[in-house]
């Protein structure tokens, strides 16, 4: 296994921020981020509901929802030990509940913390008018 495809919700500010954080962490595997609902995401996991988190490996293993969070941590050099701890039978239910609560309230958290989503960022950038470059000859 060399590469992980992480399907995330680009409309959610919290998810976009976490995606940015993940992308900057040293990782054991190459991480490719795919917007949920995009053609690429549909190709990877046709059964995935738009907005749901999923991780798919280049070997075809897929983890969906709360369990995908643990696999995201497992991919990172500094957090693999934490992923192993969280995956233990007595901690996993708590980890899944915490992730589920965070996921359920992600829109509120994003609004309260003014976290910009990738979609909002794309829209904002789309509205910027790029001035035409003119060269004034002397």
């Amino acid at each position: 296994m060399e590469r992980l495809f992480i399907v995330y919700d680009p409309d959610c500010g919290l998810c976009s921020q976490i995606k940015g954080w993940l992308a900057h962490q040293p990782a054991y595997l190459r991480l490719n981020f795919v917007s949920s609902g995009s053609p690429a995401a549909r190709r990877l996991l046709p059964s995935l509901a738009p907005g749901d988190l999923a991780v798919v490996s280049d070997e075809g293993d897929a983890w969906v929802g709360d369990r995908a969070w643990v696999i995201c941590l497992w991919a990172l050099r500094d957090y693999r030990r934490w992923a192993a701890r969280l995956a233990r039978p007595f901690l996993l239910p708590f980890a899944e509940r915490a992730f589920a609560a965070l996921s359920r309230n992600r829109a509120t958290i994003s609004r309260v913390m003014s976290l910009q989503s990738d979609t909002e960022l794309r829209q904002a950038l789309g509205e910027v008018e790029v001035p035409v470059c003119r060269i004034n000859q002397p």
């Binding site: 059964s47 798919v56 897929a62 643990v70 497992w74 992923a83 192993a84 969280l86 995956a87």
Partner: peptide, 9 residues
């Protein structure tokens, strides 16, 4: 991976 995959694609 510490968790078995939910599905194979």
């Amino acid at each position: 991976p510490p968790l078995s995959p939910d599905l194979r694609v």
